[in-house]
């Protein structure tokens, strides 16, 4: 059925009996179609035969529906399932893609790249490990850091130094030399004056200590703070 421009033979009539050459060409074209349909196309095909081959393939595809073989069908289904499971479950632990229904069957499609899958698996571990390490380092630094103020046995901070005029101290500098009183009444008056002086001085210091919060903050002491009150 091929027609070569270099062939000198004329076209046979439609009702002519096929000669041996025509039968041989028909047999060769049939074998060619079988090879193509079975997936073994020849490396080179003449142009007129290629056109006929395409027409024959179209006619065959239109005449019968495509039926995949069982292995191919399973492969496609398993591939879809594997893709869905991989996306939902975070990847296969080993990184190899196998069928979820048949471990021996390798599937294609929907495959997460190995590097990405490994990164997604390791990210939570890296995050938790990093935060744990930071917390451990902070606690270690806290425990090992030298204390700036030595705590007392009961856990309180050491007392801050107190100014001299706020301390309990001898009253010599305040009273001075005590002169002998000429009379009992004078002695009584002098001793009352001394105790009043000592009391007033210590009361001023006591109030300064107890009201230190307001005075250190720059708030003026109320005018009434020196009148009455404790003790």
């Amino acid at each position: 059925m091929t027609r070569d421009d270099d062939t000198p033979t004329a076209l046979p009539a439609p009702d002519d009996v096929a000669d041996a050459a025509e039968k041989a060409r028909a047999r060769a074209f049939g074998e060619l179609i079988e090879k193509v349909l079975s997936g073994r196309p020849p490396a080179a095909v003449p142009a007129d035969e290629r056109a006929l081959l395409e027409v024959a393939t179209v006619i065959r595809a239109a005449a019968r529906p495509v039926e995949l073989d069982t292995l191919r069908t399973r492969s496609i289904v398993e591939s879809a399932l594997a893709t869905a499971i991989e996306r939902k479950g975070g990847g296969h632990p080993t990184g190899s893609i196998t069928s979820p229904t048949d471990p021996g069957l390798r599937v294609r499609g929907g495959v997460i790249p190995l590097s990405r899958a490994r990164g997604r698996r390791l990210a939570p571990w890296l995050l938790s490990g990093l935060t744990t390490a930071v917390a451990a380092a902070a606690i270690a630094a806290l425990v090992l850091r030298p204390a700036t103020t030595a705590p007392t046995p009961d856990g309180a901070l050491a007392p801050a130094p107190v100014a001299v005029h706020l301390r309990s101290r001898p009253a010599d500098a305040l009273i001075g030399v005590i002169t002998a009183a000429p009379t009992l009444d004078a002695a009584s008056g002098a001793v009352v004056l001394r105790i009043d002086t000592i009391y007033a001085d210590r009361l001023a210091g006591f109030r300064e200590r107890t009201l230190a919060g307001t005075t250190r903050a720059g708030v003026e002491r109320p005018a009434s703070s020196n009148q009455g009150g404790r003790p």
Binding site: T152, D154, A156, L157, A158, P159, A160, P161, V162, L166, R167, S168, R169, R202, G205, F206, R209, R230, P231
Partner: peptide
């Protein structure tokens, strides 16, 4: 803060 022992107290 602990009270100093030598502070004027109540």
């Amino acid at each position: 803060i602990t009270e100093p022992e030598d502070a004027i107290d109540e």
